[in-house]
Simulated scan of single mutants.
Amino acid sequence: MPPSQDMTTALDPGLLDALQHQVAVFARRAEQTRLGGTGQLRNSMDRAAYLLLNRLDQEGPMGVKALAAGMGIDSSTVTRQVAPLVDTGLVKRTSHPEDGRAVVLQLSQRGLARLEEVRASRRRLMVEVTEGWTPEEREAFCTLLTRFNTALSARQSAHTGHAPAESGGAGGTAPGTAPEGESSPAS
Rank of each mutant, 00 (worst) to 15 (best):
Q40A: 09
Q40D: 09
Q40K: 04
L41W: 02
R42Y: 02
N43H: 04
N43P: 00
S44Q: 09
M45V: 05
D46L: 06
R47V: 07
A48F: 04
A49G: 13
A49Y: 01
A49W: 04
Y50I: 00
Y50D: 06
Y50P: 00
L51F: 09
L51R: 13
L53K: 06
N54S: 14
N54D: 13
N54W: 00
R55C: 07
R55A: 10
D57E: 09
E59M: 10
G60V: 06
M62T: 08
M62V: 08
G63C: 04
G63D: 14
G63T: 07
G63W: 08
V64I: 15
A66T: 15
A66Q: 13
A66D: 14
A66Y: 01
L67F: 05
L67W: 06
A68C: 04
A68L: 07
A68G: 03
A69D: 14
M71C: 11
G72D: 01
G72W: 05
G72N: 02
G72L: 03
I73C: 07
I73S: 01
D74C: 04
D74L: 13
D74R: 14
S76V: 12
T77I: 11
T77Y: 10
T77F: 11
V78K: 12
V78Q: 08
T79A: 15
T79Y: 04
R80G: 10
R80A: 15
V82Y: 02
V82W: 02
A83G: 12
A83Y: 06
A83Q: 14
V86W: 05
D87K: 14
T88W: 02
G89E: 07
L90F: 12
L90Q: 14
K92T: 11
K92A: 09
K92G: 06
K92R: 14
R93L: 11
R93M: 11
R93F: 02
T94F: 03
S95P: 05
H96G: 06
P97G: 03
P97H: 10
P97S: 09
E98G: 11
G100M: 09
G100N: 10
G100T: 13
A102W: 06
A102T: 13
V103G: 00
V104G: 00
V104I: 12
L105V: 03
L105H: 10
Q106Y: 03
S108Y: 09
S108F: 08
Q109P: 10
R110Y: 01
G111S: 10
G111L: 10
L112I: 02
L112G: 14
L112D: 12
A113V: 12
A113T: 13
A113D: 15
R114T: 14
